[in-house]
């Protein structure tokens, strides 16, 4: 068991042509904690996510993920699917990316692809229907069932994901990410578009994920009630730079944060200020 932070972002920079989206950003995400990344629109939060999850290759800087057993992985050297597969970083997307034509259950089964590929002997054992494969498949279905139950979608398991209501799709995407058994779960605005009740349920789900699975969570969120309620640590970004970090309480009272929000969007600034009271 390692005491080091699960994720260390060190002097990360990302440029697109002449535009600097992220500049010299460093922060840590603690193990088994919920770290929130907040900031006004266009601050570069999603870009940071895309660098961490391998969709962008950072222009410079290092991103180090340390597993529980102390093994460290330099994420900026991995690309594409390898981050999810080898470093066990799972993510969700700002605009939900489920497999809409597949059922909720199938979505969760796809998430267990790598484990199932091994179990199916790279397809060949599965093709002849070997018992070991059948057991593995049943185990995968059971895991999916557990997650469907947790997000309250057990009775909709056989419905196409594209047919589910918006809030359910958000939760299903989180469950799908969890089915990859991640060490770090990255959520890109999980509460976007949810009503107050759904947001509360989401907070509960995330807290239970942290408690039951020991999964560390990194999230981008605009819904300050969620951020303030569940996060252990908050990193604030503006214009590609980190402007503040600390506990939710510290952040709420930080004049720099309020200025950043005021400068961009009054409503959001008010949300930040009112969220704790």
């Amino acid at each position: 068991m390692s005491g080091a932070p699960i994720l260390t972002v060190d002097r990360l920079a990302m440029r697109f042509g002449g535009i600097v989206a992220v500049n010299d950003l460093s922060f840590d995400a603690e193990r088994r904690k919920i770290t929130a990344l907040i900031g006004p629109n266009g601050a570069g939060k999603t870009t940071v996510f895309n660098c961490i999850t391998g969709f962008y290759k950072p222009t410079s800087g290092a991103i180090c993920l340390t597993h529980d057993d102390g093994k460290a992985v330099q994420l900026e050297r991995l690309n594409d699917f390898r981050i999810a597969k080898l470093a066990r970083v799972a993510r969700t997307f700002q605009n939900i990316r489920l497999f809409p034509g597949m059922t909720a259950l199938e979505n969760l089964m796809v998430a267990q692809h790598n484990a199932l590929m091994r179990a199916s002997g790279l397809t060949f054992l599965g093709l002849i229907g070997a018992p070991s494969w059948r057991n593995a498949e049943q185990a995968a279905i059971d895991l999916s069932r557990t997650w469907l139950d947790r997000i309250g979608l057990l009775d909709r398991a056989d419905d196409a994901a594209g047919n589910l209501p918006y809030g359910d799709q958000r939760r299903l995407e989180i469950a799908r990410a969890m089915c990859t058994q991640p060490a770090l779960l990255c959520l890109d605005e999980p509460a976007a578009g949810l009503n107050a009740r759904e947001s509360a349920a989401l907070s509960e789900l995330l807290l239970s994920i942290r408690a039951d699975h020991g999964t560390s969570i990194l999230l981008i969120e605009h819904d300050m009630s969620v951020v303030m309620e569940i996060s252990d640590h908050v990193v604030v970004m503006d214009h590609g730079l980190k402007i503040a970090e600390g506990t939710p309480r510290e952040i709420r009272d930080d004049p720099k944060v309020i200025a950043a929000y005021l400068g961009s969007d009054e409503e959001e600034a008010i949300a930040v200020m009112e969220s704790g009271t």
Partner: peptide, 8 residues
């Protein structure tokens, strides 16, 4: 894109 995010 979702496939890649799932490690496929």
């Amino acid at each position: 894109v979702a496939c890649r995010a799932l490690g496929i």
